[in-house]
Design a protein around this nucleic acid. Structure first.
Lengths: 325, 325
DNA sequence: TTGAAAGCGCTAACAA
DNA sequence: TTGTTAGCGCTTTCAA
């Protein structure tokens, strides 16, 4: 409706002065500031963002790419990220891909058309090489380890984290250890699997394919896993589960089936999500909130220091001992 | 990076011509069009949206306000809406509120700052009167019946839909009918409850408070309801459930408990979601996709005919008979 | 069929 | 401390 010129006229000042109070610059007399604010209030004025963004070349928005946002994993990541964004007056724009490459491409395009200053990728469908092509148009941050020119990254060392989990179970006397994994095809998944296999090798045990469960992300997946284990003649005595949500499903079903935890089956989860505390589940905390915070930090660093080299940052994990082992 | 002026220079034409090919105007010679396209391709050019939006006064974006998007209810609504939006070259911007009024206000503010051309509200926290104050800044469409100056609406007649469901159960001989409802405080919920109570009155039965279950939205809620019913001495013989997701939970748990459907308990769901077909659940289809389509249609009508009066549109529902009654 | 030029609403360098 | 003014990148008359 009203624009800065009309406000200036109403307040009897120049547009520059109005712009100054809009951006809380110093060097505006108290009296003029008051008059400008009054004029804005009366006009119900809000600046046109398109004009602001065009003029400044910045949008104050960062896109966050994820498949969906309702899983506790992304929820935690987002929590830390948005908290940090808020602190620096940035707005996070949720970009849901539903695991579709086409959607992801549309969001990358937003970088090129200057709708966001950068993109934080919590997941990705496209190959990193294709994504990196957009580095010229804005900042790119990944929440997993990537080695690509122009992309910053913040990540957990999944190999070490899972090795830690495995050795912990082994120290507690387990030899027959099963493994639940989420999506198979990510780099992190490969690292996790490698740690699982290597740890078994350390104690001279072969990998038992029937003890490896793929596609475990939510509660119901975990319940299904427990059903399958219950039906086995030779069961594992322990389970390393990629997410707490799935681990919670294992626990829930085991109770229904009357299988004792940890007596008959020890369980180590991953992520230290709220549900794991409620269920007293031993888990590995990869500090997702911190990853989210650092991811925004890496983005913001690139904003504040244009031309700065991409960051690589490993966030430490921690084993949280409770009563499921 | 590159802007329209550089493309014009590279192609040896004026910026107006470049703008014309950008917007596929007629009256551009084939030869110049080719040269411009070639120049754009070589420069990897994409127009700056902020400049486009500022200049045109339109953004080609519509915000869709909802608490979250992963529930089948919103999924269906969004499906129809986005399909229609795509058809008219509009982009839907998902605005998740998590049921927080503050978030909703921030999204309304986007209307004022011209980041979106309109807002379609699939849910709302703020009172309609407060929302209507933004009608001056863009188009407002609600997915429920509202009577407020400046707001269009597309809706199901929930009272009639639930009356239909109740009478259907009554015709099938039921007298002891329970009722599952989602959130209590919406206008639709009130209508649904009124239909439930009125139908009981028609057959001279009182409302039994213990047969009314609130807060039923997902599968697990439905399972809990079934557990409670199973524990009752005097059980209802039929259940009218606000959403198919919750109804599916009732069915799932009843199977585990060995309670026959529809023999011991008849169930009517709502929404005709995919899961209801899988489970052969009798349900009331409120044609959510159509509501989504019409909601976008109401918005788009306001774009195409500026100044047009807000629309009110009732979408018909239909009872889908399957085997749970 | 084409181009020159005046905006769209704001920011920021510069001068005062 | 304030105002003038030249952009930011695009669209769209208007005249040719």
């Amino acid at each position: 409706m009203a624009n800065i010129r009309e406000i200036a006229k109403a307040a009897g000042v120049s547009v520059a002065t109005v712009s100054r109070v809009l951006n809380s610059h110093p060097y505006v007399s108290a009296e003029k500031r008051r008059r400008v604010e009054e004029a804005m209030r009366r006009a119900g004025y809000s600046p046109n963002s398109n004009a602001v963004h065009l003029s400044t070349g910045r949008t104050g928005m960062v896109g966050v790419i994820l498949p969906f946002s309702h899983h506790p994993y992304f929820h935690a990541l987002l929590g830390g990220l948005m908290e940090e964004a808020l602190k620096h007056q940035y707005t996070a724009l949720l970009c849901q891909t539903n695991y579709e490459a086409g959607e992801e491409r549309r969001y990358l395009q937003m970088l090129r058309t200057k709708q966001v200053d950068g993109l934080i990728l919590c997941s990705h469908e496209l190959p990193w090489a294709e994504i990196a092509a957009y580095a010229a148009d804005g900042l790119l941050v990944a929440c997993e380890p990537v080695r690509q020119e122009g992309i910053s990254c913040v990540y957990t060392h999944h190999y070490e984290a899972f090795l830690t989990g495995m050795r912990y179970l082994i120290r507690r006397g387990h030899r027959n250890i099963g493994f639940c994994i989420g999506r198979r095809d990510s780099e992190s998944s490969r690292q996790r699997y490698a740690a699982y296999a290597d740890a078994l090798q350390e104690i001279g045990r072969p990998v038992q394919p029937e003890w490896i469960f793929e596609g475990c992300t939510d509660l119901r997946d975990g319940m299904r896993v427990m059903d399958r284990i219950a039906a086995m003649e030779s069961r594992p005595s322990a389970l390393l589960v990629t997410g707490d949500e799935a681990a919670a499903g294992v626990l829930a079903r085991s109770r229904q089936l009357g299988i004792a935890i940890p007596g008959e089956l020890a369980v180590v989860g991953f992520d230290n999500q709220p549900i794991s505390e409620a269920l007293q589940l031993t888990t590995i905390d990869q500090h997702l909130q911190e990853i989210g915070r650092q991811a925004f930090g890496a983005f913001y660093h690139g904003i504040v220091q244009p031309g700065a080299a991409p960051r690589r940052m490993e966030v430490p994990f921690a084993l949280v001992e409770r009563t499921s082992v």
